[in-house]
Structures are given as structure tokens and as C-alpha cells.
Computed example of a mutant assay.
Amino acid sequence: MDKNEKRMLMDKVLRELEDTRNTETSVVKKLAQLESENINLGDRLLEKKLPEIFNLVDDALSATIDLQSVYTAARDKFVKDNKLDEIHEEQ
């Protein structure tokens, strides 16, 4: 794999991380909505389990955001170190 192909694959990974982040954000919102609806319902099972699931997904979201940030910096460094931004601008 040449350097430009690697940059393109890194870009794809970043797009997929963004998609993952958006999906996890949606799941967090849905779980919060369910917790809110359970205030009126008062179901003990939901009251016990929803916060546990919410915390797991929220932790995954935080980890995804952190990875996305670190990987973006790594991708940007790779592009700069290999002067691929100049190649990309010429195309």
C-alpha cells in the first residue's frame, strides 16, 4: 500500500468513526428518552437496567470521541510528514 492509499484508508476509518459516534449518540438519546418515559411508568426493571445500559453506551461514546480525536491527529501528522496535503491539493 502506498502512502496515498494509506491516507485514503485513514480517511475512510475517520468517516466510519464519525458514523459510529453518530450512532452511539442516537442510542444515548433513545435511552435517555426511555428513562424519561419510565418516570411515568414506574417499571422497576427498566429503572434498574436502563441506567446501566445508558452508562455502558455513554462510556463507549466517550471512548469513540477520544479515539476519533487521537486518530485525526495521527492522520494529520501522517499527511503532513509525507507531504500528502500538497498532492491532494493538486488533484
Rank of each mutant, 00 (worst) to 15 (best):
N40C: 01
K83F: 12
R44E: 15
D81A: 03
F54V: 00
T23A: 12
L56G: 04
D66A: 14
L31M: 05
L56V: 06
R44P: 00
K83C: 00
V28S: 05
E16M: 06
L41R: 11
F54A: 07
A63K: 14
V27R: 06
K80H: 08
Q33N: 06
E16Y: 12
A74D: 11
E52N: 03
E47P: 01
T25I: 04
D66Y: 05
P51S: 10
K30Y: 11
D43Q: 07
Y71L: 12
E47Q: 09
Y71D: 03
D43G: 02
L45F: 11
L50Y: 04
V57S: 05
D11E: 09
K29Y: 08
L17A: 07
V28H: 07
R75N: 12
T72V: 03
Y71V: 01
V27P: 00
I87H: 05
K30H: 07
D85S: 05
K30N: 06
N22I: 01
I65A: 08
T72L: 15
I53E: 11
K29A: 15
L34W: 10
I53N: 02
K83H: 14
D19T: 09
I87S: 05
D76A: 08
K77I: 08
T72H: 08
R44N: 07
E24W: 08
S36N: 08
L41K: 14
Y71N: 02
K80E: 13
L67Y: 13
T72Y: 12
D59Y: 06
K12Y: 08
D59R: 15
L46I: 10
E18F: 09
D81F: 05
A32H: 09
K48M: 09
K80V: 02
D43T: 05
N38A: 04
G42T: 06
E86T: 01
T20I: 03
K12P: 00
I87A: 08
T20P: 00
R75L: 09
I39H: 13
T72F: 09
T20R: 06
A60Q: 09
T64W: 05
L45G: 01
V27K: 04
S36V: 01
V70Y: 10
A32Q: 14
L41D: 07
N82A: 02
V57L: 07
L61K: 15
E47V: 00
D59T: 04
N22C: 03
V79N: 10
L84K: 12
S36D: 12
A74V: 06
E16A: 03
T25G: 14
F54I: 00
V27E: 08
V13N: 03
R15N: 12
E24N: 07
D19K: 10
N55G: 03
A63V: 01
K77H: 09
T20M: 05
E86N: 02
L50I: 11
N82F: 10
L31D: 03
K83G: 00
V27Q: 03
K48N: 10
V79T: 10
Q33R: 10
E24D: 06
N38E: 06
L31P: 02
S62D: 15
